[in-house]
């Protein structure tokens, strides 16, 4: 659709504003995998309330929007075996790399962090190869 890029730009602006708010007010980096991961492995016990509140907003606001303007769909593959493998890879990978699209991509690149840029290059490359293999070679997705 022709207006997709406009919605992308607006949504992206909201994401960047959220990250800016979290940085300037709370003094923290808005990384989705780190905020959740710290709760999962206990390393974020010291600020668990802040982490849980962030995640609560992240889940609740789209839920309200879905009630008001939905239905929305993630169009996720119905193949649950692939979903499980993908989830495991994303979970392990983002914690090993200490960041995902929001932490390394948005927060890292915007401060010209070498780690953020290198991580982004590698997950984009791996993502591209993954789609190439599973869609065009194996025909699984």
């Amino acid at each position: 659709m022709p207006q997709d890029w406009i919605l992308g730009l607006i949504g992206g602006g909201l994401i960047g504003t959220a990250a800016a708010l979290f940085l300037l007010v709370n003094g923290r980096i808005m990384g989705a995998s780190g905020l959740l991961g710290g709760l999962v492995d206990g390393t974020g016990r010291g600020n668990a309330t802040e982490r849980a509140s962030f995640i609560a907003g992240l889940v609740a606001v789209p839920a309200v929007l879905a009630l008001a303007f939905g239905p929305f769909n993630t169009n996720l593959t119905p193949n649950l075996a692939l979903v499980i493998i993908a989830g495991l890879l994303v979970g392990v990978g983002t914690r090993l790399a200490n960041g995902c699209t929001s932490g390394h991509g948005v927060c890292g690149i915007s401060r010209l962090s070498l780690r953020g840029m290198v991580a982004t290059v590698f997950y984009l490359l791996a993502g591209g190869i993954s789609v190439l293999v599973f869609r065009h070679i194996l025909g699984a997705i």
């Binding site: 993630t74 590698f122 599973f134």
Partner: peptide
């Protein structure tokens, strides 16, 4: 950093979800 990002990217491409959207789309 490199190995983790490669694993993450592989899973991201496979399902099309990364951690933020996975939580945002829970409902």
């Amino acid at each position: 950093l490199v190995i983790g990002s490669v694993l993450f990217g592989a899973g991201w491409g496979l399902a099309g979800l990364c951690p933020g959207p996975a939580m945002a789309s829970l409902s």
